[in-house]
Design a protein around this nucleic acid. Structure first.
Lengths: 233, 233
DNA sequence: AACGGTATGATTTTCGAAAATATGATCTGG
DNA sequence: CCAGATCATATTTTCGAAAATCATACCGTT
């Protein structure tokens, strides 16, 4: 008999701290918490319904991921954004993602091909349904993330995948930052399609070239349309 | 008047949590806490003199760095070691360090050259003094770390430097693991000297080649002399 | 004896109060 | 009127007790 008739305290079998970490991460990436904004415990306590120490644990984890800035004895704040940081994240992503694509193309088996094709398929479906503002659609965000994840998933290095994931999150925050000012999304569907085809046909050089262009053009877009937000800090 | 006549509660103006994080990191790297060993709070509480939540915060931070393994609802343990992990860390280090050396050689100014030369000088001094078991000498460890840090310090990317630092720590733990079984340290002094010269003379290709060989041979050494520790887990 | 379920003890996880520290306002002497 | 010290308030940081969860030994049934 389910005596938890009142309500489930946490999302899923995890700890509350892990749950809060996840929710805070999403909120920071989506810029629901603005870059540089102070993260006061009273406010967080009310918003997330957890105690001081649990929140502190979550913030510490996010600080290690580069999404939160811990200022000793003076609390936490959302990691600030800057042109320099955007350039660094972009460069690091290119360096690592290019390497992982190469390895995945070399090592990927049938399951990998299936994952790449099916995640792209789902992404295109969602884009057809509502082609207007993809970043505002949580489903699109997840599908987009999963497609790029699938591309590199066969690289064979959990270590590099973890690093890649952190950089992807940091980059996604910048995309959100510019989403409100960008007039209209460019033709991402075509780019994704081309990347998929290059990967599946094991054309590593082409895939690498396309991925690098994809990452850099996204970054340029952010710099163009959110530039005024990057200098102010 | 120093009324803290009893004793200073923490290392330095930092928070206790940050201090514990630092001490725990050092201890794990030095294998004072063995790979895979459970990290029970009662034990840690006694050893480090901090409360549950403070320790929890430190462990969470180290989990994000890959030195601690967090098992939901079942506590923490020192991150296990394995051949696979050693290979991953080595590969990731080569990928990143090679890139950072290139950038540093391209961008490094006079101060960078001075830092490289002087950190190597100090390292050699310490090696002369006691050439036997360098890893057991805390001063050698610090000097060694600072030399390698100096080499890449001019790369211009704080993001990549942070990633590099984490990987360096994880690799250093493997070095400690094999230190007890390695008959005698190979000629690291010569290797460091050659790397320094290649860097200062701006011979990027040579420096990259030497660094890669340096990293890989260290890793091979670990696999050879600590192999029996890597399969057991 | 083997199996499944239950109670017991050990351990982790969470909480809110209390201590420590920073921030900001007020006062004093120059 | 300004600079520096002093106090009051706001906020973070730390603590140990209490709740939740997991591991294990025990017991009854087949």
């Amino acid at each position: 008999m389910p005596d938890s008739a009142i309500r489930p305290r946490k999302e899923f079998g995890k700890t509350i701290a892990a749950d809060i970490t996840h929710r805070l991460r999403e909120e920071i990436i989506a810029c629901g918490l603005a870059p540089g904004e102070p993260l006061r415990f009273d406010v967080l306590r009310e918003r997330f319904g957890a105690s001081f120490t649990t929140l502190r644990e979550a913030l510490t984890a996010l600080a290690a991921e580069g999404l939160v800035d811990a200022q000793e004895q003076r609390g936490f704040r959302v990691a600030p954004v800057s042109r320099q940081d955007l350039v660094e994240v972009t460069d690091a992503r290119v360096l690592i993602e290019v390497e992982l694509i190469r390895r995945s193309i070399e090592r990927g088996d049938d399951d990998w091909e299936i994952a790449v094709i099916s995640t792209l398929h789902r992404l295109k479906r969602i884009e057809q349904r509502d082609p207007e503002h993809p970043l505002r659609d949580p489903e699109w965000k997840i599908a987009h993330r999963q497609f790029h994840q699938a591309l590199v998933s066969a690289c064979g290095s959990a270590t590099l995948l973890a690093i890649r994931a952190e950089l992807f999150d940091r980059a996604e925050r910048y995309r959100h930052l510019s989403a409100n000012f960008r007039p209209r999304p460019r033709d991402k569907a075509g780019e994704h399609q081309a990347i998929m085809q290059a990967a599946i046909s094991r054309n590593a050089d082409l895939a690498v070239q396309l991925i690098e262009a994809h990452i850099r053009s996204t970054s340029d877009n952010v710099a163009t349309y959110a530039g005024h937000l990057l200098d102010a800090e």
